[in-house]
């Protein structure tokens, strides 16, 4: 009974490892097929480019949000409110950009 349980445990582990390896290779195939986004991490140059990218994406989203809100206010005559709303959405979009840049792009990560 005891030995049997151990054996099934080992079998289970072996199967798990096999599945893990298969999943890994599938993931690599998928990555080669559709591309994996920006190469993050690594040398000084890569770190520098990642920094520039994150900064500008964050700032640009806020600017674009503010611009949309300001313009929409001018069209609809709702002076500060749409600017406030779209500025908030712009900040959210900025954080979303940064999150999307930093989050791992695998099948289980969503997004």
């Amino acid at each position: 009974m005891r030995a049997g349980k151990n054996e099934s445990d080992q079998e289970l582990r072996a199967r798990l490892e096999k599945l893990q390896a298969e999943l890994g290779s599938k993931e690599e195939e998928r990555r080669a097929e559709i591309g994996g986004g920006l190469p993050v991490g690594g040398s000084f140059g890569k770190a520098l480019s990642a920094g520039f990218t994150v900064l500008s994406e964050f700032v640009a989203a806020i600017l674009v949000g503010a611009l949309i809100g300001w313009q929409a206010d001018g069209w609809f005559g709702t002076k500060p409110w749409l600017l406030v709303l779209f500025l908030g959405l712009g900040v959210a979009a900025g954080f979303y950009n940064v999150f999307r840049f930093a989050a791992p792009k695998d099948a289980r990560g969503g997004g």
Binding site: S56, I68, A92, A93
Partner: peptide, 25 residues
């Protein structure tokens, strides 16, 4: 309802961030 406007703003911000990054640096 919240996420779609955010996605659209994020998409519209791309040409801005792309051009401003190169220009500013």
């Amino acid at each position: 309802v919240v996420l779609i406007p955010i996605e659209i703003i994020s998409f519209l911000s791309r040409p801005v961030s792309l051009s401003v990054r190169l220009f500013a640096n």
